[in-house]
Structure formats: C-alpha cells, structure tokens
Amino acid sequence: MSQTQTNQPTISKEEATWMFEKMLEIRHFEDRVHDIFGTGILPGFVHLYAGEEAIAVGLCSHLDDKDYITSTHRGHGHCIAKGCDLEGMMAEIYGRATGLCKGKGGSMHIADVEKGMLGANGIVGGGFPLAVGAGLTHKLKKTGGVAVCFFGDGANNHGTFHEGINMAAIWNLPVIFVAENNGFAEATPFHYASSCKSIADRAIGYGIPGETVDGKDVMAVREAAQRAVERARNGEGPTLIECITYRNYGHFEGDAQTYKGEEKVKHLDDLDAIKKFYTYLTEQGIMTEAELDQMDDDVRRAVDRAVEFAERSPYPLPEQLMEDVYVSYKTDGGAAR
C-alpha cells in the first residue's frame, strides 16, 4: 500500500557484514549452480534465486534459529539467509549422501529444521498453511518466535494464500507473509494472472497491514521486516509484505526466457541488489570497498569449497531408499517391497 523509503544508516558494521556476506553467498552460489547445470552433470530441476537476494537477507536479518521460514521451489536463497550450510546444500543439489537431506530431496526440497528452515517446496502455495502451523506452535508454546512464509507472485492466486492468511489473521498468529513479486510465474506475467494491482492490497481483505517495498533494496526490505517482526513478536498478528524484484535467470535452468523484455538489462546492472547495497555501504561509510571486495573473494572460495565437497561426496547407498519414510513402521512381512 505505501511505498517505503530507506532512511539514514540504521545498521551496525556487524549487521552490514552479515547481510552483505549472505547476499554474496546467495549470488555466487546460484551463479555457480547455473554454470555447473550448464555442463549437464546436475540431476533434476533447478530454480535460481539470483537477483532476489535482498528479500531473503532483509527478512532473515531479524530472525534467529528458533524462528521458522517456509520457502518455495526457488529456495536456495532462503536456505542460505536462514543459515543453512553451503556444503550441505551443494551436496544435496548433487544428490549426494552428505547433503542436508541425505540426497533424498534435492534442490526443491532442501531443509534444515534445526535452523528453522522448513524446506524449499515443490508445490506452489504449499508454504502458506505450513507457516501458519509453525506460527501456531510459537503462539501456543509462547516461544516469542515468528514464522515467515516466502512465496512468489504466482502463488498469491492459489487458494492456500487466502486460507492461510485468513487463519493467521483470525488467530492473531506471529506469521509474516513475504511476496517475492518478480513479475512472472513461469512465463505468465503477474498483471495477467492476478486481479489486484498489488499483492499488498490483498491484505485489506484480511484486515492486516500490507505494504509494498523495493525488493532490490535490502535496507528497505529490512525496515519493513522489522516492523512486521516486531508486531508478530508483540502478539499483534500477521503482516503481508510485497517485495518487487526480478529473477536474473530463467524460471528454471534451461528456460529460454522469451517472455522477458528490455527491462532485464537494467535489472542485471543498475538495479542489481548487491550493487545497490555495495554503493550504500561505501557511501555511508559503513564499510570500505577493500573490505567488501575481500568478502567477495572469501565467499567465492567458500562456494568453491562447497562444490569440491559435493563432488567428492558419495551417493546414498541402496539401503537408504527405505529409511525415513516413517518414524516407526513394522515392515517384516508387510508392505515394503
């Protein structure tokens, strides 16, 4: 509803370091996955988050391990911002036994429950009720924790969006719904598939606050997130934040992106979220170019290590096929074939 503006410096050097580092981790991780996918060695579908870093990082800068997030098919960025291990993530994408999910989930299902990361998700709209449930646990157990639901513009037309937000509102749950409006769901533009002008407008129907922010500006996202997280922690209920963004790559790897227009050039350059934050940090004197460039080198090396780790890791063994379907299940003479 309101377009939020970034105020004067409101972060410490320590916070800035964490945020810039996480944004770089996401970017370099995704760029590497893109390159490796191009060589044909990665199994499955991969959806990359590059370009949208400011959203996951802006939000997660207010969260700790007890707070939960739900994610999407485009989940690598959410995982990284929530503290998932790069090596374990890369190994998962490679389908190796050392992956965060033992190679059984892959890119679309990376999860780390101990870090509060309730999984990337192969089902569009899957995250809304899952975040509501996590919020319900927080409320009933009085943990002070929150649950954040990241979702795409395409997902805001799914029934679960409406069911989830309505429940969070009537039960006054500590849930923050974060729309990542990158303009497209696969090849379908937001303005074609949604009857509203902005996703944030839909908050009105549920009687909760909604606002639209520049999702390329990590400080703007962080500020909106701060208000929402405070409200949630104070027992004031859910908030809807719409972040306007753009994905640097295709819907999935291999997409020719014919539906994109001229705008894509600007997004990769002037409007780039990392460039924007870099300029902000140096202009405000929060960090020096040398410091930021050093971080860039360090993160590239960390991503190299993640790839090396994944590539030298073994595939899961045959006996792992039958593990973890249930906590307990009597199989002798039973159904396991």
Partner: peptide, 20 residues
C-alpha cells in the same frame, strides 16, 4: 508376482531413484 516401486516416496538421488 508384482514388480513395483517400494512403499516410499520417490527419492531424488540418482543412485536411489534408479533402484526405486
């Protein structure tokens, strides 16, 4: 005789999906 998948979800890892 029945030759089917096992009573598990479909695993991601190629090493497991191939034996699934």
């Amino acid at each position: 005789k029945m030759v089917t998948a096992p009573h598990t979800p479909v695993p991601f890892a190629p090493s497991l999906e191939d034996i699934y």
